[in-house]
Design a protein around this nucleic acid. Structure first.
Lengths: 230, 230
DNA sequence: CGCGAGCTTGACGTTGTTCAACTAGAGTGG
DNA sequence: CCACTCTAGTTGAACAACGTCAAGCTCGCG
């Protein structure tokens, strides 16, 4: 399972999420006192859909997948990288987690008591508006995902997923694919077999190259065209 | 087009959204001074995706549809009824509208200057947390919609739409269907023809009845079973 | 009475899933 | 060091689900 440690304090932490820069020195100290740091190995569950949300989690390092557990299969909403927050949808309203998060690579997270988090929102308006900004950005990304999943066919959806990984996650045309074919299927809302076939097509069309875990985006323009034409 | 009028003032308004109850008397007066009231006829655009978001809108009366304009067709995210807010995703971050809203029936909305709205968030923590609660509730509903649209087949999706209308919008087993078949198609992410066929099936199975615009949910249990089994 | 928009129906083709078999590679124990 | 197993990945064939097309219908309205 996961091991606990506690390295740098919040005021000194250089990885902290942008919204924390809105906190005062005192508030950061309060956060630090109410915080735990945990490292998860690959493929461990970080937070479980349906469980009580007692903490807001903050990804300090690593990659994690956020997914909704549906009746038959899962849908990956988003891949989280360092600096991102887990549990905000449970901040007010029902205090249970609305999704499951599990680690894709070894991942270190900070846990901050949800009530401490709430108190920051009450007392620090800049922090509150930063949280709203963060929530809204997620909402806008979800709208885009809605269109991708419901109005594009397979080639377009795989192209979207690859562009997402290239632009938002790895920020490089060449990257090591940490997601399994099943993860890609859950991310694009299709079957594993279809993912494989489409990747093969894209490789044959010289748009991407795949060697084992290594993926290279060879023709981003063409990939974006594929994304656009569905 | 739309006509402008201004009836009751904000402090006296009995239709106001729950979050406004968190505002002080003075703040409500400020809102009132920076507000306009507009009535849209059926099928008019209330706010347009891509346009600048200068105001937060509040539905005082009527029904409206929120939809994302995709490359080939639209996706209806949600039906709005009185008390709901338009434009929150544009509050911080990019100040353009991320969706289009148009009236389904005659609809009266209040427009509140977005900067006034922002200032309330800065100065009134209860209001801010109420906004976050509202945003989060929408997010959770969107998660459910994600599963419905991506993991269910046609019968399940139509069942979901009908249950949504019955439970959240009309709150009655018998209601007048204000949405066209195309609207239902955009709401469920399918073709018009398929909507019609599934409705026919449900009618044949004695689960619903349709006479012109009048819809009756005759067997909600069965409809929920249909929703669950996809 | 005639026109047009929204609705309905059936026939057909495409897309994408499912199933089943097979392969490659990584870890395990003898 | 090699057989053994287990999982992830891959391939092809058959089938079901759904969208598209084309035609006809209905109803409200000028």
């Amino acid at each position: 399972m996961a091991k606990t440690q506690k390295t740098s304090s919040c005021p000194d932490c250089i990885n902290k999420s942008y919204c924390f820069s809105k906190l005062t020195h005192d508030e950061l100290h309060t956060a630090d006192k109410n915080r735990a740091e945990v490292t998860f190995k690959k493929n461990e569950i970080i937070c479980k859909q349906g469980a009580f949300a007692t903490h807001i989690l903050y990804i300090k390092d690593g990659l994690a997948k956020v997914y909704i557990e549906g009746p038959y299969k899962n849908l990956i909403i988003k891949i989280l990288k360092n600096g991102e927050l887990i549990g905000l949808p449970s901040l007010y309203g029902s205090n249970i987690h609305h999704y499951t998060v599990s680690s894709v690579t070894e991942t270190t997270v900070c846990l901050i008591d949800i009530n401490v988090f709430r108190s920051f929102i009450k007392t620090n308006a800049n922090f509150a508006s930063e949280i709203i900004r963060y929530l809204n950005q997620n909402t806008v990304e979800e709208y885009e995902k809605f269109i991708n999943l419901t109005q594009k066919q397979l080639h377009g959806r795989v192209a979207d997923a690859l562009i997402y990984l290239q632009k938002d996650i790895y920020k490089n045309d060449v990257f090591e694919m940490h997601l399994s074919r099943k993860d890609l299927a859950d991310l694009t809302g299709m079957s594993i077999e279809s993912v494989i076939r489409i990747l093969k097509d894209l490789k044959k069309g010289n748009i991407i190259d795949i060697q084992g875990k290594k993926v290279e985006i060879k023709n981003l323009d063409q990939l974006m065209k594929t994304s656009a034409t569905g």
